[in-house]
Design a binder for these strands. Structure first.
Lengths: 190, 190
DNA sequence: TTGGCCATGTAACTTGTTACATGATTAA
DNA sequence: TTAATCATGTAACAAGTTACATGGCCAA
């Protein structure tokens, strides 16, 4: 499979920060871009092969089984080219919202659980990112302000998810209350 | 291509609200789930064929070139089954954040433009969804509270995107200021 | 000596988009 | 009569995940 521009972008971008092996690249991407990006081995290794063939990256520190890759001058200009392309926003797909949308079929209780779970996850994420944020705010290298901005995005999103969950739960409470009243008024009629 | 569970979920879900043609289904999905879900014709038509063969949906109003589909009892129970499956959150991929992350390569000005664009989009989205929200809050049918919850999610996200953009821009301003000062102090030294 | 991590790579599969082909109906 | 919209469907392509295969190194 020919690798996508996006994967090339992530790979070249990673190597623009420091030379490393394919394995380390995956780890780096998972740990630092994890909250808004993902690449699997099945993408990274073919991308490395392709980029090397095109002279965008080169091997250094070849030591038998493993080798670090370094970005070349052509690679850097290719990276800048890719970054300058307009970002095509992928179609959003949110399994939780899809389930909530059809909540009448799923049932109020199951909806509540879904929302509570996603709230808990957002809390966790927010805490994690805030820890990273503190380190970044004192860092002085050239990359960290940009990294900080992406972390702030994650924090805002997590906070929004929490606020949404609370509001959603109160809507569901109102729903439960209403059906409760309906039930009792039906009983009175009978 | 065998259709995915998610597409089946969306198709069965759509038909659980009202019987309609494949074409109308696409429109409905685009217009009401649009801010968190997408399906293309290439997914919908094979899914309809498959679901019909499995007895989950059936044709009504066949009029030569077009036919409406209605969900059957088996279809409804299949839908409930699918909805109850744990939502697997797809790997997030945000092209804007990826570009900002490598902002040192992309340049501060290009970053600013990206962020401003995404802010404008979020403003638009927020306005659109707020209009929908007003209609939903007065609606009284059984589906609308759930739909309202998904709309609220979109509004919270859009607001978060706006707040993030403003914060990000102020980080970039600080960066520009700092490099400005560095330049002038270098000039003093020379 | 065994299990875990580092490291590389491939193949099969799943998922989804886009472009194309076709044709009816309807409004300007 | 011509363009837009409704409607259905397929084929080619693109993108990405997962599982598998392989093997060295190191610590308990």
């Amino acid at each position: 499979m020919a690798t996508s521009n996006h994967t090339q972008m992530a790979v070249l971008g990673g190597l623009s920060i420091a030379p490393m092996t394919g394995y380390a690249l995956r780890e780096e991407i998972r740990d630092t871009l994890g909250h808004f990006w993902a690449e699997s081995f099945g993408q990274i290794y073919p991308a490395l092969t392709e980029l090397e063939r095109a002279g965008m990256i080169e091997r250094v520190d070849v030591d038998g089984r493993s080798s670090k890759f370094r970005i070349t001058a052509e690679g850097t200009s290719r990276l800048r080219e890719l970054l300058a392309e307009p970002p095509q926003t992928a179609q959003p797909r949110d399994g939780i919202l899809l389930r909530v949308f059809f909540g009448r079929q799923l049932g109020v209780e199951a909806c509540r659980r879904l929302i509570l779970d996603s709230r808990a996850q957002a809390e966790e994420q927010s805490a994690e990112l805030n820890a990273i944020r503190e380190n970044l705010e004192t860092a002085a290298d050239e990359d960290s302000p940009f990294i900080l901005i992406t972390v702030l995005a994650g924090i805002h999103r997590a906070q929004a998810a929490i606020a949404w969950a609370d509001q959603a739960l109160s809507v569901l409470d109102g729903l439960a209350l209403r059906s409760e009243r309906q039930k009792s008024s039906t009983e009175e009629q009978s």
